[in-house]
Design a protein around this nucleic acid. Structure first.
Lengths: 238, 238
DNA sequence: GTTCATTTGTGCGTATGTATA
DNA sequence: TTATACATACGCACAAATGAA
């Protein structure tokens, strides 16, 4: 079994990145240059680059070039008290979360079920995107019961934190009740939103938050870049 | 922006599978036949098939052909009391777990740290593979302190369950203390072990189990097929 | 056990489209 | 507008794995 051509260049570049011969943000040679240097076809070069892009090691940008990725994989802790900012800021990342759109819709079946509402009840839908050091890492939407939280998205945008927003509705504490995670290929729009290569998969995280007595107050569905996140869970009470 | 060729065949086949026009286990036309039928090149066909394989919808086997996947995505519940069999049997899947190898090694740094042992302490390493309906879904290894659990792997193999094995060591209860999950591309051997297409990513799950008083008793590192699993977590105490 | 047809895997050359600066 | 660099696409050849004759 002889070594395949494309794995040679993949491993060479991968080593160059790990060892620091290529550092974050550096531009790689063009595909044609790599093909010439390694004396292989451009198809093989592209295959190697795709493989590296899928692992988040490089970023391929049409018309510009190929660059060593500069975003470290961030750790996101899921737990009973999942809080975005407490979670990500300690890693030295500049984390921001931006409201993309807010609307009022009749609840899709899964949402109604999660929030214990009648099928088709009115809910608010807030779409948000989360960036770490200006690079998107996740985006998705949160649903709230429209009757109880009529202007959740707007208040959240003004107050700057989910915890504060709930407080403004008289809810002093809330906990994560349920989380599910699975992996799938990214849709083209998702790859674009996350500014990642179309072949990088995404992790779909569905969650339900509730008040401490167990009443569900929100459900969310967030698409994470699989190459840029690492989930951890502590199963104690914290 | 016109539609790309390869996405047409991907979506056509994907629809055929969803609608039941192609059912589990069916053999797809050969790549050449598909290229002829859709009047596109074989490269585009292969690209579409790879995309479907990455999502676990089909299984591509060199020398045999391409088949509609017949394994449903299983749900694995992670929680304070994670138990393999209680977890997977209710889904109507025939779940088996087989010991691949057992050995005694000096603990790698991460293992020593997780088990609160001195660096280089002796630990037992059991490698196991888990199958659902005879198809591999995960494989990995569990480490135990060699002093406290000298023959864990062998006892586990005889007794048939982890819970029973711990009981034989005088431990009547244990809980999941910590879990972490991230996604990466599969290594070629991993793809082979999981009998999956080389481009399907894997989810790496690292965990620490402990007695209820918080003393760690084992740490594990399990590679899951990203296309065949869906993790869920309940954050209550159960 | 060997040979052979079948089917997927790897690889190269080439042409053209599209995004970026 | 132009040049550059990545994206899509086709055709062809040969390698490697499988299974049946």
């Amino acid at each position: 079994m002889t070594r395949e051509n494309w794995t040679i260049i993949r491993d060479t570049l991968s080593d160059d990145i790990r060892s620091g011969r290529l550092s974050a943000g550096d531009q790689l040679p063009t595909e044609t240059q790599l093909a010439d240097r390694f004396e292989i076809g451009r198809h093989s070069v592209r295959r190697a680059l795709e493989s590296l892009a899928r692992d988040g090691k490089i970023s391929i940008e049409q018309g510009r070039g190929t660059f060593v990725a500069d975003a470290p994989r961030l750790t996101y802790q899921i737990g009973k008290r999942t809080r975005l900012h407490r979670n990500l800021i300690p890693q030295g990342l500049d984390v921001t979360s931006r409201l993309v759109s807010a609307s009022r819709v009749s609840a899709p079946d899964e949402v109604a079920k999660a929030l214990l509402l009648n099928s088709g009840a009115q809910v608010t839908k807030s779409q948000r995107i989360t960036l770490a050091n200006d690079l998107p890492v996740a985006f998705g939407c949160v649903y709230h019961c429209a009757e109880r939280f009529p202007d959740f998205a707007e208040r959240r945008d003004v107050l700057g934190s989910t915890t504060e927003t709930y407080r403004s509705f008289g809810i002093t504490d809330y906990v994560r009740q349920h989380t599910s995670i699975f992996s799938r290929a990214a849709k083209p729009e998702e790859a674009k939103t996350l500014k990642q290569h179309p072949d990088v998969p995404v992790l779909v995280v569905t969650a339900i938050d509730a008040t401490p007595d167990g009443t569900p107050i929100s459900t969310s569905r967030v698409i994470w870049s699989a190459a840029r996140v690492n989930f951890t869970m502590e199963h104690s009470d914290g």
